[in-house]
Simulated scan of single mutants.
Amino acid sequence: MNPSSVLLLPGWQNSGPGHWQTEWERLHGYQRVQQHDWMRPLRGDWTARLEEVVADAPGPVVLAAHSLGCILVAWWAAHTHHAHKVRGALLVAPGDVERPDLATQIRGWAPIALQALPFPAVLVGSHNDPYCSFERAGALAADWGARLVDGGALGHINAESGLGAWPQGQALLLQLLAPGLEQEQQKEQG
């Protein structure tokens, strides 16, 4: 798969220097989906932008989402006609926008879409994430039909976590790129 087929979906305020998404873009040539306004994210605008990028992709894509990007993936997947183009999604440290403190900061993103995703997904949660408890991350993984990976105590799994290029996350992404994964997951769910 071409590196430009891996779409990086940052969360609120984008992913800056030292963030694993920025490192992956630099090291591997993955494509960051640029949003119109990183500081005042509008769910409709972000969804339309993701729809445009996936629809225009020449072949299948893999999504690598962080924080609000995870919430975007679930919402987009519930409304798109292009989900068949997604081979898989790596969902890292989803932001719980239904929590009152986050709902006031990031308006218009609740409710979170809770349907099973129509493509294989892996969700990485952290035990000390200030924006989503590990229990809530586990519940989202179950709702979305994603495999839950216990990231340990990595905070919000961002630049402050000191992960650099985060090789463990890259290994999870490569598993999603592996041929035959989709059939294996379907057998497990069947």
Score class of each variant (00 low, 15 high):
residue 96 D to L: 09
residue 161 S to M: 06
residue 116 A to Y: 08
residue 106 I to W: 01
residue 121 A to Q: 05
residue 73 V to R: 08
residue 168 Q to T: 13
residue 129 D to E: 05
residue 113 A to P: 02
residue 60 P to F: 13
residue 46 W to Q: 04
residue 112 I to Y: 03
residue 105 Q to I: 13
residue 92 V to T: 13
residue 52 E to D: 14
residue 178 A to Y: 02
residue 67 S to D: 02
residue 153 A to L: 10
residue 59 G to F: 10
residue 145 G to R: 02
residue 95 G to D: 07
residue 71 I to D: 00
residue 50 L to T: 00
residue 158 N to W: 11
residue 47 T to N: 09
residue 175 Q to K: 15
residue 149 V to I: 11
residue 157 I to T: 03
residue 160 E to Y: 10
residue 95 G to Y: 01
residue 124 V to S: 00
residue 182 E to F: 07
residue 178 A to G: 11
residue 98 E to Q: 12
residue 102 L to N: 06
residue 95 G to F: 03
residue 137 A to G: 09
residue 143 D to P: 00
residue 127 H to V: 02
residue 62 V to Q: 07
residue 108 G to Y: 01
residue 63 L to H: 05
residue 68 L to F: 00
residue 42 L to K: 14
residue 120 P to S: 12
residue 57 A to F: 07
residue 75 W to I: 05
residue 137 A to T: 08
residue 143 D to Y: 14
residue 48 A to L: 12
residue 105 Q to M: 15
residue 151 G to T: 06
residue 126 S to W: 04
residue 172 L to A: 07
residue 145 G to Y: 04
residue 150 D to W: 11
residue 151 G to Y: 05
residue 136 R to E: 00
residue 92 V to A: 02
residue 149 V to Q: 09
residue 100 P to W: 05
residue 96 D to I: 06
residue 149 V to Y: 02
residue 65 A to F: 00
residue 184 E to Q: 15
residue 112 I to S: 01
residue 168 Q to H: 13
residue 62 V to R: 06
residue 154 L to V: 06
residue 99 R to E: 15
residue 146 A to V: 02
residue 104 T to L: 11
residue 173 L to N: 01
residue 51 E to H: 08
residue 136 R to A: 13
residue 137 A to R: 01
residue 77 A to P: 04
residue 52 E to M: 12
residue 84 H to F: 15
residue 101 D to Y: 13
residue 89 A to M: 04
residue 122 V to D: 00
residue 39 M to N: 14
residue 103 A to C: 05
residue 104 T to R: 15
residue 138 G to D: 09
residue 89 A to R: 01
residue 176 L to G: 08
residue 61 V to C: 12
residue 167 P to C: 14
residue 121 A to D: 05
residue 45 D to T: 13
residue 181 L to T: 04
residue 74 A to H: 10
residue 128 N to T: 10
residue 156 H to S: 13
residue 141 A to N: 03
residue 95 G to I: 08
